[in-house]
Amino acid sequence: MSEQEYYIPDGTYWPIIGSIGLTTLFVGFANQMHGAEWGGSVMVLGFAITVFMMFGWFGLVVNESNNGIYNKQVDRSFRWGMSWFIFSEVMFFAAFFGALFYARQLSVPWLGGADNNIFTPDLWNAFSASWHQMAFMAPGSVTDTVLQSGTVMSFPAVPATGIETATPAMVVDPWGLPALNTALLLASGVTLTFAHHALRAGHRNQIVGWLVATIALGVAFLGFQILEYGHAYHDGLKLTSGIYGSTFYMLTGFHGFHVTVGVIMLTVILYRVQKGHFNADNHFGFEGVAWYWHFVDVVWLGLFIFVYWL
């Protein structure tokens, strides 16, 4: 098919299936959080429909691509689409990094009386603004406080959700598992680069080897991450441990989710490499996934440096 021809794909049912899947997932999730017994199963069902949609839709596109239906213009549209999708991911992580910086540089010092926050000693008996000890005040430890004006203010001692609170003993030590995990993920970036090189040089066996190594490193990373969560949890750092726990788990958690997605995508790419879907000149599927993996890798590097060190 020559490049001058426009291509318009056939209609499919996959979009509407995706909408139904996501709606089922969210409705189930919300009801599960509100204590409905059926919520969890509906949520799993919605998740299954969504995954089914993704395999179906991507499978359709891969088939059409292999049948040579697409032209270079379609290929460029996919490239634009992928790049701006990743930019939206960057902005999503930026919101959480922003929350981390704001809490660490502004709100916690302010709560501790930085600048001229004169109310702090009155409102927060025995409060010290250290990063790791940020936790919800234990129940009963905050009492009604009388301001100088005589107004009585009371503060909720526990969040409205009534979840048990905890205070971590200290921040997570960056020398142990986090450093190891950083090394693992960086190594996966290196192996992926070798796979990329092998693909461009047309050495299929080498690609498979390097890809398998990349996937293995990714899986190892996830395993150690779970292990580290266990340690941190044991030491009292929980999602409910105030802003430190919140930012720590949400940032690393969303990152871990992206690593999981990346591992799945790399596995699909491995399968497609073995099926011979790519050649040295035309391998956008590989490039898109590779870039995604590099992005996830850089996010981790940012996490390692900003969450653990600086």
């Binding site: 009386g113 930085a114 702090t120 927060w124 008996n125 010290s128 921040v171 020398w175 653990y308 060190w309």
Partner: peptide, 22 residues
Amino acid sequence: GYMGWIEPNVVMFDAPVAPAPV
């Protein structure tokens, strides 16, 4: 980190610690 040029964020703040409880 090994040389001690940077420290893990255990000790975060040079900001004045809140005065003793009143």
